[in-house]
Design a binder for these strands. Structure first.
Lengths: 247, 247
DNA sequence: CGCTGTCTTGAAGCGTTTCAACACAAGTGG
DNA sequence: CCACTTGTGTTGAAACGCTTCAAGACAGCG
């Protein structure tokens, strides 16, 4: 229960992360995968070993689909290295980006704990390797080590909070405000200068607008002196307080 | 794990429920409160008894606030009878209705499993009684009966799914489509004629629009022959397939 | 180097909001 | 029980924010 440390089991902030995973990607063992995720890394070494025995490691190339809405599933997926985008399609066929998973994040919980089919799509944004643990294996460990269940509960409540916040933002804020919020969010773990974590096209999909509007709003924020756009998707925040207050 | 029955641990559909809770509200014991909720009602009788010993029952009058954003919390709240609305305020002060809890639903999980303060508001929409179980008591039971954790995991994943769907709807659909979807959803458990589960003002807040727009769109749906508006917030669906297909 | 996808910019159009005024219903107190 | 008050729903007209379409500039990748 406890655990009020937001870093502990939280989703990585999708925004503007430093690419921790380095050139030693291929060196990474399955062990690192388990020790990486907050839901398992509090366990004793021998307990982790036990889990490592049953996990399966799979690699995906950039652009490959890991699962689709409607796919049967019985595994939890943990990102070991790389970057995965999770999105939904509305009935009209429009894509909406829900989140970007970074190393240590997991997905597949819906299929695990409720339905047996996915409701969303998962696609590798770059070459990515993931660890999989099957439903029945996970269930064994949940019963054996109830602390894992508590970690997952904490993680899911956190996601619930995050997405409720996002829904409220969609329902009550202008596109301009949502973009400003996103930029402010990007400065949370980082410096005042950072690389946008995704293309403007994806950002548009994430914020529920169009690439044209993203481009225009970024330009107008630049005109007003709040930010400076640099090459290679880099952005420098010039007036953070102004950004926060005026939008 | 198992449990693919969507009815089992799902949020009550907010929409258009029959008021099951009758004139015998006051007769309801704390026992009914526990046996009512999917997260506990699979337990043996003697296990439920154990839980009943530690729960606290509280009543609220219509309009009373059960908790506010920022409030400290260490309890899980289970609705025993009545109706509670959960909403958030955006920074700009706009209210967004997130869901309506009916008997058997619970809330407070965020404060329980993660932060210690609420991010949303809970307000009694009518005279309501709830059962509370404290964090430390709940934790004991989670360890003693891991199946409870699995039920809660299932419930939370289901909510995650529902709210992701809602977010996608905000991001990709017109207001008209969202209203049409809502009406279609209302017919899921009910007849083709039902009472709107909330005022148009609240519905507007729930769907991220204004009361004026709700009123106009309902009128235009009526003009086009899809629905008929009746007194006392009742609606009759005349052409369900049309509603589904044309929006 | 050239191709393909991403970003930019303009102009027109549309859906939704906003404000205001009024009708109507529900709840309260004399 | 009616009059009064308060809140909810309706309707119109104007304004606004965002999308759409189209065309061109630019960057990244094979």
């Amino acid at each position: 229960m406890q655990n009020n440390n937001p870093n502990n089991t939280s989703y990585n902030n999708h925004c503007c992360h430093t690419h921790i995973q380095g050139h030693d990607n291929k060196v990474k063992s399955q062990k690192s995968c388990i020790s990486l995720v907050p839901i398992f890394n509090h366990l004793e070494n021998h307990q982790m070993e036990e889990i490592i025995k049953v996990i399966k490691s799979v690699s995906y190339k950039k652009g490959e689909i890991i699962y689709r809405a409607g796919d049967q599933s019985d595994s939890l997926y943990i990102v070991s290295s790389g970057k995965i985008k999770i999105y939904r399609l509305s009935e009209s066929g429009k894509e909406q980006l829900l989140h970007i998973l970074l190393p240590g994040d997991f997905t597949g919980e819906l299929a695990l704990f409720r339905e047996s089919v996915h409701e969303s799509f998962a696609e590798a944004m770059e070459d990515t390797s993931i660890c999989m643990i099957t439903r029945s294996d996970l269930q064994k460990f949940l019963e054996k080590y109830p602390s894992i269940a508590l970690k997952i509960l904490s993680e899911l409540s956190g996601r619930l909070d995050a997405i409720e916040k996002q829904t409220t933002s969609f329902a009550t804020n202008s596109v301009e405000k949502r973009i400003a919020d996103f930029l402010v969010e990007c400065t949370k773990n980082q410096e005042m200068e950072f690389t946008l974590p995704m293309s403007q096209k994806d950002l548009a999909s994430y914020l529920g607008t169009t690439p044209e509007t993203i481009s225009r709003k970024l330009s107008s924020l630049e005109d007003e002196g709040y930010i400076k756009q640099l090459p290679r998707r880099r952005i420098r925040i010039l007036d953070l307080d102004g950004l926060i207050q005026n939008y």
